[in-house]
Design a protein around this nucleic acid. Sequence first.
DNA 1: ATCTACATTCTCCCAACTGT
DNA 2: ACAGTTGGGAGAATGTAGAT
Length: 336
Amino acid sequence: MKTLLTQFQTYLNSMTGLQVEGRPLTAAGLPHYLGQAYALYALEIEGRSVLGIALREPEGFQPAQFEKQLPRLLNVSGPVDGYCVIASALSGYVRQRLIARRIPMVIPGRQINWPMLGAVVEPRSSDKPLPVPGDPLKPATQLVILHALNSGETQPVTARALTQTLGYTPMTMSRALDDIEANNLGRVTRVGRERQLDFPDGLPALWQRAQPLMRDPVRDTVRVWKEALPEQALYCAGESALARRTLLAAPNEPVWAIGRHAWKPLAKTLEPIPIPEPGAVQLQLWRYEPGVLASDGVVDPFSLYLNLRETRDERIQMELDAMMEEIHGQRTGPLS
DNA sequence: ATCTACATTCTCCCAACTGT
DNA sequence: ACAGTTGGGAGAATGTAGAT
């Protein structure tokens, strides 16, 4: 005869189509009487980890008592997305009580009562906001992708390597990888303890898919005196950058970009200038560090595109498109 | 090395206030 | 009544500490 666990797996899979994995959990640290009453399983249902609690003696089962014992059982499993009572049989009365208390229950071959299958069955409300596919990418995530696009690198990158090149903490990089996974923009694989990121569909496909999720790198623009700014923190940006990269004429007012960290100390001391003046410049305050992607002191073409794509001016649109064409040509051109 | 949970800082937006 | 400013609060983005 099949074990209760395999019965559970095949039954749930046939009823819901969900992928169900499971293995017995050794109940270290569990009081003896609880170990006698319940067999615990670590279940994996569509990527969610769930604690399976099988009743060894369904006859003596008491839902109210069970609810008190639940915290200790969840303690054994570590953090999980939910739990579920598994029993070979239960009296009608007990089934009713479980439903009333909203305790998820599966009786293989007979009954499933699991209101939130597919949603999170909360043992505790997990306050972790999972990345939502379709939301705008976070600045750090956008930077990870733009870095790949700019460097042309298709080899897998580790989270640690990104930490160093992009200047964020490991935690932020980890979340950026989550973000990329949730939006299906790249492939994240585990190599031992490490997570590695690559883009198997190629960079042109990445740009096409990621672009609608990306935001203008510029959070705000202010007019200030050029001489009040630290030269080494500035990068040629906006129309000025486009003029540097194409045949477009330079704008009347030079445009520069600056990152968060360099801007913070300046924010308090600098007075904004209300009208154009000789010696004044447009300063773009970026959501991420422009210097990471810049070359020759000019912001990278992808960020530049994201910055100017809404511009109405036809000359700018033409040069922008020409610039992106050229990049595309470099990537695929001579070899293909 | 990465993750969980909590802390801190930053952004953004709207309501209330100001002066015209 | 209206435009412009301000300030405060909610939520986003990132960081820190500690566990695994």
